[in-house]
């Protein structure tokens, strides 16, 4: 049984605080150079196939900018 996940960032909610970056055990999240309408740099994810859907990023996001979906693959 393996776990796989999908992470979605609501960029307009993001304030670029980076708390999710430190929280990700796989170090998949990074700060992009994109600015949202509020002028904050927003986060993105790389190698998303490695995401396990552990939701640590969701837990640490103060701005509800992260949605995580998790599947268990038999």
């Amino acid at each position: 049984m393996a776990k796989t996940g999908w992470v979605i960032f609501a960029e307009e909610q993001c304030k670029g605080c980076e708390l999710c970056i430190n929280a990700c055990p796989k170090k998949l999240i990074f700060l992009t150079e994109r600015l949202n309408q509020s002028g904050y740099p927003v986060v993105g994810a790389t190698e998303t196939d490695k995401c396990t859907g552990c939701a640590m990023c969701y837990l640490m996001c103060p701005d509800l900018a992260i949605k995580v979906e998790r599947w268990t693959v038999p």
Partner: peptide, 29 residues
């Protein structure tokens, strides 16, 4: 899909006024 972590029903859609990284948002959630 067996789990979704997303905005709880008891929260509105409104973006908070808190400074970046302020943990009030985590506690609200």
């Amino acid at each position: 899909m067996n789990a979704v972590f997303a905005r709880p029903r008891a929260m509105t859609e409104q973006k908070t006024h808190y400074c970046p990284g302020c943990t009030h948002g985590i506690i609200h959630r």
